[in-house]
Design a protein around this nucleic acid. Sequence first.
DNA 1: CATACACTTCGACATTTGTCGAAGTAATGA
DNA 2: TCATTACTTCGACAAATGTCGAAGTGTATG
Lengths: 95, 95
Amino acid sequence: MSKIFRALSNKNRLQLFLNLLEESRLDLAKGRVHDCFLANIISNLRIGAPSISHHLRELEAVGLIETTKEGKQLVCTIVPEVMKEVEFFFKSKAS
Amino acid sequence: MSKIFRALSNKNRLQLFLNLLEESRLDLAKGRVHDCFLANIISNLRIGAPSISHHLRELEAVGLIETTKEGKQLVCTIVPEVMKEVEFFFKSKAS
DNA sequence: CATACACTTCGACATTTGTCGAAGTAATGA
DNA sequence: TCATTACTTCGACAAATGTCGAAGTGTATG
């Protein structure tokens, strides 16, 4: 659990994750899976491509997202189960 | 929010927080406020007193706990509002 | 094939973090 | 008042982290 918190403990990485969440919601509305064009994310955050790539791998490592390649692009999908896990963690602790 | 995650991102600090949570529950059952004898916590965790002291201040800095002095001892109290905040954060995001 | 695109990997680097031992402080007890 | 207890503060230091530029990889496109 501390690893999940660690993954979200960095400002840029949390923002990145929230962006993905937001976009995945939009994509859901469009009836298709989310694809996360790094270029878009880069314009929001003030960090370079290598950092984004690094952060994505960290989010993936703790199971918050999954990624696959689709041609040149990276496809990121949120893993809701892990979020639920954290939600329940706090629900159970904040009796 | 990333600061709260950061506070819980360290294994020892998270364990410390969970210990406090657990003890505060026991103390509640006893009808009194929790007091967190560092010596007890030290025996559970594998770190020294200065580190505990440091971690407690970090937890306090992000509002997860509050501390006061009672004689020689430190009294720690959990702040449930902050935990609720995190719970709702995940509830709202994990649509 | 040559070029451009969309990332990724590598190495380097400054910054932050976690831990400790030693010394300090404030309260309690003999 | 002197010693003990229960932390806290202060460096110091190794380890982890976040960022970047440069170079690399694999995919599309002219």
